[in-house]
Amino acid sequence: MADSLRELPQGMEIKTTPLDRPAANFRTTRMRVRGPNQLEIGASRDIRLFQGVFVGFGIGGLVMGFALSGGDENPAVAFLVGGVFLVIGLVMVAASRRVVFDREEGVVHFRSLVRTEPRPLDEILAVQVVEGGYHPGSNGGGGGYTSYQLNLVRDGETVSRLGLSNHSDRDWTAETGVTLAEFLGVPLLSTVAVRDKVAKENEQRLQRRVLVGIAGACLGFFGGFVGFAALMFNFDLPGEWMMWLFPLSLFGGLVLGAILAVQVERKIGRSDQ
């Protein structure tokens, strides 16, 4: 950790309102210690999986479009849907950023696929952890969540804040704020307390169930999609059958995916006891 703690200039006011930036109901970042003088904050496995789903569906749609182009079916819809999913997935991958703090070089590197921006480490005045606000579910219904922001307070012509993360994992955000502030030797400005172990485990269990459910639904949807494609290419079925087989294949896949997700969660739950 840093040898000494820098103090904020006297009389400096720093906003505690959340930054206006996208939020997620799952953890999108992870922290990795790369050495005694290097610490990195980058994309989590969950967000990589989320991006991979879009890229996978996009490639699958394009493959189906090419397969349909050799027959009597119109491949336009498959190409369109596949292209949209693929573009969204690639944009998310390109926009993902890694922030590497290097005390030996005295530099913080902001890295993405399209650019790398090094900045002096001394520009960082403090680490801030604040609530990012409540984000309601679709149409204002259930499924809402509160996000928590991890921000850097930077010096310059004017004091500014730079967001590192904004998601629902309260404990990761609070604990990473403590670790990062100690590593940089700067004050921690936090309105979010680190919680006890039981509260943390309960929320992690709930988040895990949500992620397992999403993964099961995606797997089931993809399985139903593949099953429908196999039926279509291997059997000469009437057109009216196709209209019913497609939703039935997707529904069947979703049901199987839900059953698989429940079994996985039960097995994980028993291992936690």
Rank of each mutant, 00 (worst) to 15 (best):
F54T: 01
H167P: 01
V198L: 12
R154Q: 14
V226Y: 10
G156N: 03
R45I: 15
L250S: 01
G11N: 09
G71V: 00
E73Q: 12
A230K: 08
L164E: 01
A95G: 13
G133I: 14
F54L: 14
A76D: 08
T16Y: 05
F228E: 06
M64E: 13
A217K: 05
F246T: 11
V212R: 10
G106M: 02
Y145I: 02
Y134H: 14
D72I: 07
V186K: 02
V129D: 10
N151H: 02
T146I: 08
R266H: 11
F246I: 11
T146Q: 05
G185S: 04
S249C: 13
F251L: 15
G35C: 12
V93D: 10
G220L: 07
N25H: 06
L90Q: 00
G143D: 02
D196L: 03
S138E: 10
V107E: 14
L231I: 14
A174D: 09
V262P: 06
P136C: 07
P22S: 04
H135F: 12
G252H: 05
G58Y: 04
V53R: 01
E182A: 07
L260K: 09
T191D: 14
R270E: 12
G220K: 04
N74L: 09
S249I: 09
A24T: 01
G56R: 04
T116G: 00
L80Q: 13
G253S: 02
N166M: 03
S96F: 01
N166V: 03
G70L: 07
I41N: 02
G35N: 12
P22L: 05
L237D: 15
F66S: 11
L260V: 15
F50A: 13
D236H: 15
G106H: 04
S190R: 00
W244E: 11
L256K: 01
F246A: 05
M242E: 15
G133D: 07
P18E: 02
L188I: 05
T29I: 14
E182M: 02
F183I: 11
E104N: 15
G132E: 06
T16V: 06
N139W: 09
L113N: 04
G252D: 09
K15G: 12
Q38K: 10
H135D: 03
E240I: 13
G142Q: 12
H135N: 10
A258Q: 10
V178W: 01
E40V: 05
L189Q: 00
G58C: 07
L152N: 07
N202I: 12
P9F: 15
Q207M: 12
A78P: 04
R111D: 07
V91A: 06
E203T: 09
L150H: 08
R34G: 02
S160V: 12
R111F: 01
L250M: 06
F251D: 11
A193M: 09
V212I: 15
G239W: 10
D122F: 00
G143W: 05
E203Y: 07
G58W: 03
G65N: 11
P238L: 10
V108A: 02
V210K: 10
F225W: 00
S147A: 10
R115F: 09
A174T: 09
